[in-house]
């Protein structure tokens, strides 16, 4: 019985790390660019489908793991340069509407390219099978998922806290004008951060593809969950995205066996309560 809970908790941690990867990008973009990206879930979708294409073309998951997120980031960079840069100065309402349009376009294009039926992606060969500890068995791939995303989290933290780029992002979140006045190219910083944030959503899409496959209508669901995590953790907070992502993942995983719809109901109720009582979330700045 205890093993069942351990299994669900580990699943929850994996799910939580996926949620973290999606939401940290959303929160970074919101923190620095003050930009609300309703197309974020759609980029997750692109990541999953790129994983499918790359794996079926080359048979190599590791290539997909590297190239998938990079391609998503490249797409985001191009989109930022051509369109999104023009709407930074608009109120959030307009940003939401434009990115909603982008999400719709990406979703429909994905269906045109990959078809309306979902695709499944095989678990990479090296990670098939299960780990056994006593009478407890756990799939390798899911362990790899937790480990790898934890590694990404650490690298990302170092990038934000220990590098010049990170310092600029953090400074820019405080005051973009000041950073710009001090002589940094704020627009380049914006483009890179946008590409990075969206690329992380793409990475989450690639990583979850062997478990859940790629589905054309997953975008809105992913976006909704990312907002739950970002709101509970606090908009713009790295730690918040990590902690809230893990909480939401574990709660959802534990509830799935008991009452799946109830899990979603509870998660969105929690989001509403947090906005009403503590709009800056667990770790956001007041």
């Amino acid at each position: 019985m205890l093993n069942v809970y351990l299994f669900q908790i580990l699943n929850g941690l994996g799910l939580g790390m996926i949620y973290f990867l999606i939401s940290v990008g959303l929160t970074l973009i919101f923190g620095l660019l003050n930009f609300v990206n309703f197309a974020h879930g759609a980029f997750f979708l692109v990541g999953s489908y790129l994983c499918y294409t790359l794996v079926s073309l080359t048979g190599n998951f590791w290539l997909a793991l590297i190239a998938g997120p990079l391609l998503v980031a490249l797409l985001a960079w191009a989109l930022e340069r051509s369109l999104i840069q023009r709407i930074y100065h608009l109120p959030h309402t307009f940003q939401i509407l434009v990115t909603l349009g982008i999400a719709l376009i990406i979703q429909e294009l994905s269906i045109m390219i990959w078809g309306p039926v979902g695709k499944s992606i095989p678990t990479p060969e090296a990670l098939q099978g299960v780990v056994r500890i006593g009478n407890f068995a756990y799939p390798y791939y899911r362990l790899f998922l937790i480990g790898f995303s934890a590694l990404v989290a650490v690298v990302l933290w170092l990038l934000l806290e220990r590098t010049r780029f990170g310092a600029l992002v953090r400074a820019g979140s405080e005051s973009t004008e000041m950073v710009s006045l001090l002589g940094s190219n704020i627009f380049r910083l914006f483009s890179i951060t946008f590409a990075l944030g969206v690329g992380l959503a793409g990475l989450a899409g690639v990583l979850s593809a062997p478990l859940r496959g790629a589905h054309p209508f997953i975008g809105p669901e992913v976006l909704g969950l990312a907002f739950v995590v970002v709101v509970i953790g606090g908009m713009g907070s790295f730690t918040g995205a990590l902690v809230a992502g893990l909480i939401v993942g574990v709660v959802q995983s534990l509830m799935t066996s008991l009452w799946p719809q109830g899990a979603s109901l509870m998660i969105y109720a929690a989001m509403a309560v947090v906005i009403l009582l503590r709009p800056h979330g667990l770790f956001g700045r007041a």
């Binding site: 609300v36 959030h92 907002f227 709101v231 109901l265 109720a269 509403a272 906005i275 009403l276």
Partner: peptide, 19 residues
């Protein structure tokens, strides 16, 4: 709530109604 938090709140309530 105003602005983005208002939007998020309406979004959360719609999802609750759906589920």
């Amino acid at each position: 709530r105003k602005g983005i938090y208002f939007v998020m709140l309406t979004l959360a309530l719609t999802q609750m109604a759906y589920f």
